[in-house]
Design a protein around this nucleic acid. Structure first.
Lengths: 244, 244
DNA sequence: TAGATTGTTAATCGATTAACAATC
DNA sequence: TAGATTGTTAATCGATTAACAATC
């Protein structure tokens, strides 16, 4: 909180101006949602305060990391006391923009698009789904999870009329690049891309989050193979040890 | 390839024995599926060879990283030539265990479970889905994507009878911990966890891949907010600049 | 006040990049 | 052979952890 001296030199970088989201490494920001989750868990349990040590044990990380991470955004704790759970949760929500209530559309009303729209994933994080879009005429007009499926042809017009922040891409990968180019033009600033193909884009204009479920599965596959190899080697070693 | 001297001292760590999957950092292994994807793309385009430089440009990473990564597993390239695309792809597949044909079950036949089973995600990576399981009687017996939904009560017995390597958890988070404990007992060595709650486990016995779609969405949300702040600040600055 | 625990700096660790000798 | 490009070592960079003074 001791920021008074920063005002002494007006020519220094004016971080005092923006109270939120200073330049922080992606590694830290990627951990914020995890803090969010565990804070919810603490709230659920009725905990009112938590020390970095206690929180770290719960999350299987170091207390240092928690303090270091949180201090990127300001002093959320109190010496000798720890962190107030409700206050910290509030601050993390603020940082992540949960209360901003961003608006999103889902493009592609296939299995995955429908699964997402009917889940609580958006609602829990303050994201509103305004509409779904699909090219298939037989889907247009149907409703899933209170969201209407519109014709893909209406997309451009819709984005101009409505304040769409985020587009969720659950359409065939072949269309991803083209659609996201259009969306960028129409002022959409976030793409949640499930197509499995990285989208080339200008990061200063639009944020793209590529979700690669396949990569995740393959990493798991690797480790499962590794475990079974270890077991084989382990058994061999036991036999060897049995001899010596 | 110059490993001849390692055989001089038989008491040194016997890495020469295991031709595959030496101890390599998770950061590197996490990148393998990405190489896999881009190699498929090269194959699709009919490319027969690729240099680390060319591949790096395509992937937006450094050539150094590619060479460094691949050399964790042995020399897959050739000086003065580059990498043979088909050969490299084959090797990456081998490392990731694509040809192992691991067997999986999906636990929870809700929207997400059905979306996954009807997608090509498993097939593309050599993972076989043996069955789905659900507690709801009205779902039991139904078929999605050629996979039958069985009663959750049959799970334990099924895992004993069949060689189940991986369990995909698409059930309510409350059940995740308990079910995964059971699965570990029944010899399952991989869990692909979509419940959104980290699963506590013994990493020497079972590999758990926690998929946190919500975290991904929140990271996107953060960056979208950041972009809009930048635009606001940018506009302010323009005005200021216009004055000076 | 004494004890506890943060905020923050310094030390360590690991991952990425650069450079270049080896070699195809 | 000369040119190209890998494999590999050394340098750099960034992220994590440890330590401790500040302070509640």
């Amino acid at each position: 909180m001791n920021r008074s001296n920063s005002s002494e030199n007006p020519y220094r970088n004016d971080s005092s101006d923006r109270c939120e989201r200073p330049e922080v490494s992606p590694a830290v920001i990627r951990r914020l949602p995890r803090y969010f989750r565990y804070l919810r868990e603490l709230i659920r349990r009725g905990k009112k305060r938590v020390s970095s040590r206690e929180f770290a044990n719960m999350m299987h990380i170091t207390a240092s990391q928690i303090r270091q991470d949180l201090n990127c955004f300001g002093g959320f704790g109190q010496q000798g006391y720890g962190y107030n759970v409700d206050y910290l949760y509030e601050k993390i929500c603020e940082l992540l923009g949960v209360e901003k209530g961003l608006n999103a559309v889902i493009i592609g009303a296939g299995d995955l698009g429908r699964a997402l729209v009917r889940s609580s994933i958006f609602e829990k994080r303050g994201v509103n789904i305004l509409a779904m879009f699909d090219v298939k005429p037989e889907l247009v007009g149907q409703t899933f999870g209170n969201v209407k499926i519109r014709d893909m042809k209406e997309l451009a017009d819709f984005c101009i009329r409505m304040p769409v922040d985020i587009a969720v891409l659950t359409l065939p990968k072949e269309a991803a690049e083209e659609v996201s180019k259009q969306l960028t033009e129409q002022g959409v600033t976030g793409i949640w891309n499930f197509t499995g193909k990285d989208i080339e884009h200008d990061a200063t204009r639009i944020a793209v989050e590529n979700v690669h479920l396949g990569d995740s599965l393959m990493y798991l596959n690797y480790r499962v193979c590794q475990l079974s190899e270890q077991n084989v080697l382990g058994n061999q070693n036991s036999r060897k040890d049995g001899k010596g």
